[in-house]
């Protein structure tokens, strides 16, 4: 992560102006919030391929409810509940039924994205009332609302992972399931919780997406499933579990945001965006693992 921060510093002098930094933050709000949830799931040695689709499902459900005349706050509450439900479905199948997370969430990925079309009958969500867009565009002091909410989520997640007993159990389960079990940790519950939280976070991201962008298509979020994982991993979350921080995940998301913005600033053709993203992922992860190896030479034995 140190290395990543360095890359961030080198690439960013041209954007270091505070106003621009806030703009970058604004564009990384959704991916940042998704990465927060993803990070907790990955710490338990799991993975959630369906975050983007969960987000999209909530986005479209909330939009449809609002357009059908249901009061905004009621719709938002239903949206959050829906996100929680989607997360719980993943969590139950992983923790209780003990299916591999990658399979569960690959499956729910296609189920949720199919439901997206069903919810809206394939229509776009547009012409939303201004009461909704006020959520996307309010300001607290100098911070735009969505950025403020991202920071709130970040604080919540950091507190949860670092300061609560459940949070520390999450790391314990990710590090060594058997040891955790022997120490009396209820592993099922601990594995379940991050998926549920991820569902709620995805719902928050979905609501902000709708409020900020002002319209949504039935494929919302389908491109964010892999990006959220990429952000979490760039931020130092280890796919083998047990390691990662909430702050890192958000920084990873910011780095991804900066890359795509930097390419436009340097007047490079847009087709190179993804290649640059791929290279940064490699650089971040390889350098990260090199640093870790040096720091703890007696770490893992294999490869």
């Amino acid at each position: 992560m140190t290395v990543m921060l360095l890359v961030l510093m080198i690439t960013s002098p041209s954007f270091l102006a505070p106003s621009n930094l806030i703009n970058v933050l604004l564009n990384t709000v959704t991916i940042g919030i998704l990465a927060l949830g993803e990070c907790a799931v990955i710490i338990t040695k799991g993975i959630d391929l369906s975050v983007g689709s969960t987000m999209g499902l909530v986005t479209l459900a909330v939009g449809t409810l609002i357009l059908s005349g249901i009061p905004v706050w009621v719709s938002l509450a239903i949206g959050l509940a829906l996100g929680l439900l989607a997360g719980c479905v993943n969590g139950i199948m992983v923790s209780l039924v003990k299916l591999p997370p990658i399979i569960v969430t690959l499956g729910t990925l296609s189920v949720y994205s199919g439901l997206m079309y069903t919810v809206t009958n394939g229509q776009w969500i547009q012409n939303l009332p201004s009461s909704l867009s006020s959520i996307g565009n309010f300001k607290i002091w100098f911070l735009p609302g969505p950025v403020f909410i991202l920071l709130m989520c970040l604080v919540f997640m950091s507190m949860f992972l670092q300061r609560t007993i459940t949070g520390r159990y999450v790391y314990a389960v990710g590090n060594n399931v058997t040891a955790a079990r022997l120490a009396g940790v209820q592993e099922r519950r601990i594995i379940f919780i991050p998926y549920a939280i991820t569902g709620v976070l995805a719902a928050i991201a979905g609501i902000l997406y709708l409020a900020y962008n002002g319209f949504a298509t039935p494929t919302t979020g389908s491109d964010l499933n892999l990006e959220a994982i990429a952000a979490a991993v760039i931020g130092g979350t280890n796919v083998f579990g047990g390691k990662g921080t909430a702050l890192g995940a958000v920084l990873g998301a910011i780095l991804l945001g900066i890359i795509s913005e930097a390419l436009v600033f340097f007047h490079l053709p847009a087709v190179w965006n993804e290649a640059a993203e791929g290279f940064i992922i490699l650089v971040a992860v390889i350098s990260d693992s090199a640093v870790t190896k040096r720091a703890a030479p007696k770490g893992r034995v294999v490869s």
Binding site: V233, V239, F240, E274, G278, I281, V285, I286, S289
Partner: peptide, 23 residues
């Protein structure tokens, strides 16, 4: 060689190879 996870390594090359193909 680097010991990074296959999921991540090939996610990165997914982006890189795909982008090269487009270019």
């Amino acid at each position: 060689r680097t010991g990074i996870q296959p999921l991540i390594a090939t996610l990165a090359t997914l982006f890189i190879y795909g982008s090269l193909a487009m270019v």
